[in-house]
C-alpha cells in the first residue's frame, strides 16, 4: 500500500511524544465530538469494533489494514458476525460509498488539538475515511505529540510527496445560521480506538 512514509515511527523526536500526553489528547478530541475507546489489548479493540458494528446495525464494512487492526484480527471478527468486509482496493472502490463503517489506521495523535494524523497517500485509505458515515481510526496510544509544531517537525521529515491529513472529530458545518451540525460530506461519527501497550514505541517511558 502506498504511503507518504513507510516508517513514521522512526521520525518521532525522542522525548517529545508519549502516552503521558494521551489524557490531554483525549480531552481535546472529545471536546470536538470524537469518540474514544482506549483499550489495553488487541482483543479488547476487536470487541469495541464488533460492538459498534452491532449497535449501528452495520452490514457492510470497508477496511484498510494497519498493524493494530491486523493484530486484533478485526476483519475476521467482523466476518464471523456475518458482516460484509471489503479490504481489497477494487472492492473498496466499489463499496466505500455504500458501506456503513470504514476502518483505517492513523499515524499519531496531537494533544493540543485532539487531532489524529492520517497518511492518506493510498486512495483506499481516503475512501474508507471519507465516504462511510462512520470512520473508525486505530491509533497507538503511545504515539501522541504535544502540538501542531511538533507534528510538523515530523511531517517535514517525511513529506516529500503524498497525502497527509489531520482529522479532528467528525465532519461538521455551521453554514446555516451558525448552528453547529455534524456530518456534512464526511463521516458523522469519528471513533478512535486507541490501543495501549503491545506496539508502543520508545517515546518517554511513562
Amino acid at each position: 500500500m502506498k504511503k507518504t512514509c513507510d516508517d513514521w515511527r522512526r521520525h518521532f523526536p525522542a522525548g517529545k511524544f508519549g502516552a503521558h500526553l494521551f489524557p490531554e489528547f483525549e480531552k481535546r478530541a472529545k471536546a470536538v465530538s470524537a469518540e474514544i475507546f482506549r483499550v489495553k489489548t488487541s482483543v479488547e479493540a476487536a470487541d469495541v469494533v464488533l460492538n459498534l458494528a452491532r449497535f449501528t446495525n452495520a452490514r457492510k464494512v470497508v477496511s484498510v489494514s494497519s498493524p493494530l487492526q491486523e493484530k486484533a484480527g478485526i476483519e475476521n471478527v467482523l466476518k464471523s458476525a456475518d458482516i460484509e468486509v471489503y479490504s481489497d482496493q477494487g472492492d473498496i472502490a466499489t463499496h466505500a460509498a455504500t458501506a456503513d463503517i470504514g476502518i483505517s489506521g492513523v499515524e499519531f495523535g496531537i494533544a493540543e488539538t485532539g487531532s489524529v494524523c492520517q497518511d492518506g497517500y493510498a486512495v483506499e485509505s481516503r475512501l474508507v475515511s471519507t465516504l462511510p458515515p462512520i470512520h473508525v481510526a486505530f491509533l497507538d496510544s503511545g504515539l501522541i505529540v504535544p502540538g501542531i509544531i511538533e507534528a510538523f517537525e515530523i511531517i517535514s521529515q517525511v513529506f516529500d510527496r503524498g497525502y497527509i491529513s489531520f482529522i479532528t472529530g467528525p465532519s461538521r458545518t455551521a453554514d446555516i445560521e451558525r448552528v453547529l451540525t455534524i456530518g456534512v460530506h464526511g463521516p458523522s461519527r469519528f471513533i478512535i480506538v486507541a490501543v495501549d501497550g503491545e506496539l508502543q514505541g520508545g517515546g518517554e517511558a511513562s
Partner: peptide, 8 residues
C-alpha cells in the same frame, strides 16, 4: 483549535 480536516 483545529478544523475537522487539514489536508496536505
Amino acid at each position: 483549535l483545529m478544523t475537522s480536516y487539514m489536508t496536505l
